[in-house]
């Protein structure tokens, strides 16, 4: 097992009497891009706030870089950068001044600010007031602020929220670059699976505070069982024929019959059988439930 950068052990968190995080055991390995998925209000932001020690966790439940967070708050925060909800930007200061201010707080050299502006492509808008930035620019400035201290771990809460397609692609590429070239560990939350699917190496799915799935992206893919989609000239008759021959039918519509996929040989046998009994087979192919549906299934059953 690789080093765990983030580990929570059976973490519970309450807002008053309402349980918002329920027995959460996150495991984020070094160098991974961990997609933290869940519908709105699932507890993603709360979990991230706990990881930032903005919300106080019970003792010995949250470990960052292998150390208990409450007793190592400052040391842990030094090694991470975060973007939580809206980027925290002072509207009356320019983009550059926002970064300078953060440099001051972190005790790092101002040249780093320029470097970050270049990295997120805000050089031209450096002296413009941040309040006048577009949503995408604000988001990028937020990421620049998170990256300023060159942290080992990045916590990004819905970083592509409100961005246009171009902006989304830029942020996505930036995240991949940071993880692959600079060996950073990234935890990125989102309610959009398609978004996470493109970048994440690991996925955690949370709903109503409970972690429903955690594993690599391939393990998530394996969860979705492959199926056969069959198009015939006579659907009702075909359906009857197949059931009498011992096939399990998962679903059928006016044009298609859906069966579980067993093997390619079995597919061929099915085809031959149908043709021998006078059916015309228009098409027969293997399908996989896409992750979007899988995600809905996983979160629905909770």
């Amino acid at each position: 097992m690789k080093d765990l950068i983030i580990e929570t052990r059976g973490l519970n968190y309450y807002f008053g009497t309402q349980k918002v995080v329920d027995d959460l055991s996150l495991k984020v390995e070094k160098g991974s891009i961990y997609g933290f998925l869940g519908p709105n209000g699932a507890g993603k932001t709360t979990s991230i706030k706990i990881l930032l020690n903005l919300l106080k966790s019970p003792a010995d439940t949250v470990f960052l870089f292998g150390k208990e967070i409450n007793s190592n708050r400052i040391a842990s925060l030094k090694r991470l950068g975060a973007l939580v909800e809206q980027p925290a930007i002072y509207a009356h200061l320019s983009g550059e001044e926002n970064l300078y201010n953060r440099c001051m707080l972190l005790g790092i050299n101002r040249t780093k600010a320029k470097e970050m502006l270049r990295l997120v492509g805000l050089e031209d808008a450096a002296s413009k007031k941040a309040g006048k930035y577009s949503l995408g620019m604000k988001q990028r400035l937020g990421i620049a602020l998170a990256l300023l201290s060159d942290p080992e771990l990045l916590l990004l809460d819905e970083p592509t929220n409100g961005l246009d397609p171009n902006g989304i692609i830029e942020i996505r590429n930036l995240m991949i670059e940071l993880a692959t070239k600079h060996q950073k560990t990234i935890l990125v939350s989102s309610h959009l699976l398609a978004e996470i699917e493109r970048i994440a190496t690991h996925v955690g799915i949370i709903n109503k505070g409970k972690l429903l799935f955690q594993g690599t992206i391939n393990e998530l893919h394996d969860l979705s069982k492959p199926m056969i989609e069959l198009e015939l000239n006579d659907i009702p008759k075909g359906q009857e024929f197949l059931t009498t021959n011992g096939y399990q039918i998962l679903n059928s519509t006016e044009k298609k019959i859906i069966l579980p996929f067993i093997s390619t040989e079995e597919c061929g046998r099915l085809n031959t059988l149908l043709i021998q009994h006078g059916f015309t087979v228009y098409s027969i192919y293997q399908i996989r439930k896409d992750l979007e549906h899988l995600f809905l299934d996983i979160t629905k059953n909770n």
Binding site: L52, L54, I74, L77, A82, E85, A88
Partner: peptide, 18 residues
Amino acid sequence: NIEHKNDTWKSLFAQPLN
């Protein structure tokens, strides 16, 4: 108000400072 207005309390307290 400078922190209320910009919603920066969170990020201020997420800095590695006492």
